[in-house]
Computed example of a mutant assay.
Amino acid sequence: MNTPDPYPAPGVHAAEETHRPRTARPPREPYDPSPTNPDDDGYEDGNALAGPLSEIFTPDMTRALTHCAGCGTTGPMALLRLYEHAPGLVARCPTCGDVVLRMVRTEDAAWLDLRGTVSLDIPLTAP
């Protein structure tokens, strides 16, 4: 007898879950956080996000703690690896290399994509 999953996927009833095939997540390729020549990797540290994010957020966002959705690493935004050679800004986790934040700005709007972070802990007081 199939036992229903006690934690069914969102929007799926436990009875439906028993008929759904399970698939394993493929293993990730190891990420080398220290390339042989860091200058060739083309990234800046997350401190470069201070200016663009200050247009949207008042507190110093480089002190905000990010929690990577990919590997679970928690650390200040200043430690993210920022790539500016895309149509916008792309910040990656220094541990696993997953995208944590994307920001695109036009003359009159800004789009901030945080789907790569589980949470963002923003300090509201000065250090």
Rank of each mutant, 00 (worst) to 15 (best):
T106R: 14
R25V: 13
G97S: 04
R81S: 03
T18P: 06
P27A: 09
P33S: 08
N47S: 11
A48E: 09
C71N: 07
T74Y: 00
S54P: 07
G116M: 08
P38C: 11
T66L: 14
T58S: 01
D108V: 13
D32E: 11
C68D: 01
R81G: 06
T73P: 02
T62L: 01
R25H: 08
L101H: 01
A78T: 05
D32A: 11
R115C: 00
D41N: 08
H67N: 04
G42A: 05
D40G: 11
R22P: 05
Y31N: 09
L53V: 10
A78E: 05
R102D: 06
R25T: 14
T66I: 14
P27D: 10
R115K: 01
T23R: 11
R81E: 13
D98Y: 02
L112I: 15
L89R: 02
D32N: 13
P26H: 03
P87E: 01
R25N: 05
I56M: 11
L82V: 14
L80T: 15
G70C: 12
L80K: 05
R105I: 06
T58D: 08
C93T: 13
D32I: 04
I56N: 07
I56A: 08
L80Y: 04
L114R: 06
R81T: 05
E107N: 06
C96G: 09
V100L: 00
T73L: 14
R20H: 07
P94R: 09
R22N: 05
H85C: 10
E44P: 00
C93V: 12
A15N: 13
R25W: 05
R20L: 09
T58E: 12
P26L: 02
C93D: 11
T62D: 01
C93P: 13
T18V: 15
S54E: 10
M61Q: 06
N47G: 02
L79H: 14
A64M: 00
G88E: 03
V118K: 05
D60M: 09
A69V: 06
D60N: 15
E107V: 10
E16M: 15
G11F: 00
E55R: 15
V99W: 01
P38V: 10
E84Q: 12
D45S: 07
A69P: 00
A24S: 07
T117Y: 03
A50R: 08
L114T: 15
V104S: 12
L101M: 06
M103L: 14
E84G: 04
L89S: 01
L112K: 01
C68Y: 14
P27V: 04
N37P: 01
A24H: 05
H19T: 13
P87D: 04
A78I: 00
A91S: 07
P21Q: 09
E107C: 03
Y43I: 00
P87C: 00
R63A: 13
T117S: 15
C68M: 03
